[in-house]
């Protein structure tokens, strides 16, 4: 079924074309040709999502507040949402990691401008 393995592909690159520039062209074509496959990728993604909603619709309990083991957990241990014990066990805090970015920016490894120009769409759409 596999028409060409990766190894064969590289080999092909060697035999058929050889130069770096043509290598680039191959690259773009791989991508362009991939886009009609990528289209069906979103169909597969939809199938996964449909599986989830089908299951949800078939479940006896649909809401978190109706889950008997959730009620039990609050009764036995957590008291109420955001009670001191809930805060202690179930909540957290975050770290500012932006210093890494600043450092990489000063070293020329990261550019905020490039970051801001990343297209927002994904190819699988």
């Amino acid at each position: 079924m596999a028409i060409l393995s990766r190894r064969q592909f590289i080999k092909l690159g060697m035999i058929g074309v050889g130069s770096l520039m043509v290598g680039f062209r191959i690259t773009n074509k791989v991508y362009a040709a991939a886009s009609n496959i990528i289209k069906s990728l979103s169909d597969y993604m939809k199938e996964r999502l449909q599986g989830i909603y089908k299951r949800d619709a078939s479940m006896e309990i649909r809401c978190s507040q109706d889950n008997p083991m959730i009620k039990y957990a609050y009764k036995k241990f957590f008291i109420t949402p955001m009670s001191p014990v809930s805060e202690d066990v179930l909540h957290t805090s975050y770290i500012d990691r932006s210093c890494v970015v600043k450092k990489l920016e000063s070293e020329g490894i990261f550019s905020r401008e490039q970051f801001n120009n990343i297209p927002i769409k994904y190819p699988c759409e």
Binding site: I61, C63, S64, N67, P68
Partner: peptide, 8 residues
């Protein structure tokens, strides 16, 4: 034990 809300 979980609900539909948990699975989505």
């Amino acid at each position: 034990v979980s609900s539909g809300a948990g699975t989505i």
